[in-house]
Amino acid sequence: MARASSGSDTRAGAVLRRLRGDILNGRLAPGSKLGFAELGERYEVSTGVLREVLPRLVEQGLATSEAQLGFRVVDVSVDKLMQLTDARVVLESIVIRDAIATGDIAWESEVVARHHTLERVGRTVTGDEVSDAWHAAHEAFHLAILAGCGNSYLYGAAARLRSISVVYRCWSTAEHRRTHRDVEGEHRAIMQATIGRDADLAVRLGERHIRLTTELLIASRPAAAPV
């Protein structure tokens, strides 16, 4: 029995990772229906596994669920992005201050290691997309900073909002082509302020990083994007 359960968990985890990746990379469009039949065929998986996976996507903020309407990819709009940005700034500022105040040497080392990985992966743009490897390293770096927070509820809420914000990659193509933003420099400065225990600077840099991303995404959104 234990082995069967373990196999099911492994299968559900694999499908969750694929679904999450397809949402975050725009292969499943914001607001699109997540039907059991279509997903079952797409991922070659049973309805039972999908019934386990889809609620987890809702918990992560990447999908919604409504009676009679089923599951859908979370929708996006300028207004929602602005609200999300304000919420992230407030919450991440609290979490970063707590992390800097309470994080230990192991936490510092993890932040430095994740930043090193992010720099080594590099933000090379191929066609219209930044690589999945860079996106994964980017998320890991920022989460490593937040993970120093001693309050698991605050960390969990901040991580969830950060996850939702990545759905707005669907607006990011023009940003890569039209701007000469020094993203690497921004990350380096945030890392240095964090391990240097300069909470005021780390919070200020973090807010600028978030708000600049939002401004560029809104400025470069496709004409068909909802407002």
Rank of each mutant, 00 (worst) to 15 (best):
D198W: 00
Y153K: 15
L39M: 03
G7P: 12
W171Q: 05
Q68S: 12
L201D: 14
S220V: 03
F141N: 08
R123C: 06
I164F: 07
K33Y: 09
E119T: 07
L143K: 14
T194S: 00
L201R: 14
I218H: 10
V203F: 02
E110P: 07
R42Q: 08
N151Y: 15
P55T: 08
W107I: 00
W107T: 04
D132E: 06
W107M: 07
V125A: 03
A144H: 13
L62R: 02
R27N: 07
S131F: 05
T126E: 12
L81Q: 04
D104P: 05
P30E: 09
A29L: 13
R204G: 07
V227K: 10
V90F: 00
G40Y: 11
V49G: 04
A137I: 05
H116I: 09
H176L: 10
G35P: 02
V95Y: 01
T117Y: 08
V73T: 12
S152T: 15
L62E: 01
G61W: 08
G70Y: 02
A14N: 11
P222A: 05
R123I: 01
S32E: 13
D132M: 13
R160D: 05
A67Q: 10
L69Y: 15
V49N: 04
A2P: 11
A99C: 00
R27M: 09
F36H: 11
V166D: 09
L39T: 03
E184W: 01
R3T: 15
A157Q: 15
R114P: 05
G40D: 06
T102Y: 03
D9C: 01
A223S: 02
Q83P: 01
S220P: 02
R17D: 08
E207S: 10
L143C: 13
A189E: 13
A99I: 10
Q192V: 04
G127R: 11
D104C: 08
A101Q: 03
T213E: 12
I190S: 03
